[in-house]
C-alpha cells in the first residue's frame, strides 16, 4: 500500500470514520488550512476558537488514527470583504505561530477578485514577510480562477520580501499551473468531483509538467468532496504504468520537502 500525505484537507468538517478510511488507504499526514465555515463568523473570537481547534483538538483526533495533523492559519478570502474583522484576525494570528503544528499562513487568496480581498491578501503577505512563514494560497473557483491567479501572482511578485519557493499556489488547473510553476512557486492540484480537477486530468498535468514542485490534495470539506481523492490519483498513476518512485515523489516526498522549509516542522515518517 502506498503511503501518502494529503496536503490540503479540512478535517474539522469530516467524521472520524474518514480518518479511519484515510489511515487504511495509507494516509500518514494531513495539513489543514483555515477556511470558510460555510457561514461568516461573528467576530474575532470565533476565529480564536477555530485556531484553538486547529492547533489543539484536531491533532488529538487525528493521532488516534495514526495520522499526523498540521495546520495553516488566516482569515479566508470569503470573509475578507470585512476589512476591519480581517485586520483583527491577522493581528491575532501571531499568538498561535509558536504552536508546533502550524506550517504557516493559509489558505489566503482571492474569491471573486475584489479590492477588499486584494487588500487583505496583501496584509497577509506583510505578516508572512515579518514572521518568515510559509504560504498556502487559495486560487478562486471556475470563471474567476484565471483572472484571480494572475492577480495573486502579481501581488506576490510585487512584494520582494516573499521568496517564491516558500509559496504554494493551490487549486491550479490546466490554464494556471504553468503560470505558478514559471514564477518559481510550488503548486497543488485539487481533486474535486465537479468544480476542480479529476485524478485523470491531474495525472495528465504531472505527465506534462513533471514531478518537481507539484502536489495533489483532496481539499475535502463540508461540501461535495472526497477525502480519498489522493488514493484515486495514485490508482490512476499506477494504471498508466508510472513508477512507484514517481508516484511517491508527488504524493509523499514533495509535501514533506515543502513543509520542511517551516522551521517548526520536525515530523519524520517513523513518528507516524
Amino acid at each position: 500500500m502506498a503511503r501518502y500525505i494529503d496536503p490540503h484537507i479540512h478535517m474539522v468538517s469530516r467524521t472520524t470514520d474518514d480518518y479511519k478510511r484515510m489511515a487504511l488507504a495509507g494516509c500518514a499526514l494531513v495539513s489543514e488550512p483555515a477556511f470558510w465555515a460555510g457561514f461568516d463568523r461573528s467576530g474575532v473570537e470565533g476565529f480564536r476558537d477555530y485556531f484553538r481547534q486547529l492547533t489543539d483538538f484536531e491533532g488529538k483526533r487525528s493521532r488516534s488514527y495514526g495520522i499526523a495533523h498540521y495546520t495553516w492559519l488566516c482569515i479566508n478570502a470569503k470573509e475578507a470583504e470585512n476589512i476591519e474583522l480581517s485586520r483583527e484576525v491577522i493581528a491575532m494570528i501571531p499568538e498561535f505561530l509558536e504552536s508546533s503544528t502550524v506550517l504557516g499562513i493559509g489558505e489566503i487568496g482571492l474569491n471573486i477578485n475584489t479590492k477588499n480581498e486584494s487588500t487583505v491578501f496583501l496584509e497577509h503577505l506583510d505578516l508572512v514577510a515579518k514572521t518568515d512563514e510559509l504560504v498556502l494560497v487559495h486560487t478562486p473557483h471556475l470563471a474567476d480562477k484565471y483572472q484571480g491567479t494572475r492577480m495573486i501572482l502579481d501581488m506576490i511578485k510585487g512584494d520582494q520580501r516573499i521568496t517564491p519557493h516558500r509559496v504554494c499556489i493551490d487549486h491550479v488547473e490546466e490554464h494556471t499551473i504553468a503560470l505558478a510553476l514559471d514564477a518559481g512557486h510550488w503548486v497543488g492540484m485539487t481533486l474535486y468531483p465537479i468544480t476542480k480537477c479529476t485524478p485523470q486530468r491531474a495525472a495528465d498535468m504531472v505527465e506534462k509538467y513533471g514531478t518537481d514542485r507539484i502536489m495533489v490534495n483532496s481539499a475535502g470539506d463540508w461540501g461535495h468532496s472526497d477525502p480519498l481523492a489522493v488514493p484515486e490519483f495514485i490508482f490512476e498513476m499506477k494504471k498508466r504504468g508510472h513508477s512507484e518512485l514517481d508516484i511517491q515523489k508527488v504524493v509523499f516526498e514533495n509535501p514533506l520537502t515543502f513543509f520542511r522549509q517551516c522551521k517548526r516542522f520536525d515530523w519524520s515518517p517513523i513518528q507516524a
Binding site: 479590492k115 486584494s118 496583501l122 483572472q147 488547473e173
Partner: peptide, 26 residues
C-alpha cells in the same frame, strides 16, 4: 483542455492594481 478553461474564464486586466488604487508597497 487549456483552451476550454480559458473560454470559461474572466479576462485578466494587467492594470487591475491601478484600477483598484492599490500601490506596490515593497
Amino acid at each position: 483542455a487549456e483552451s476550454v478553461q480559458r473560454i470559461f474564464s474572466l479576462a485578466y486586466d494587467p492594470d487591475w492594481q491601478e484600477n483598484f488604487g492599490l500601490k506596490r508597497r515593497f
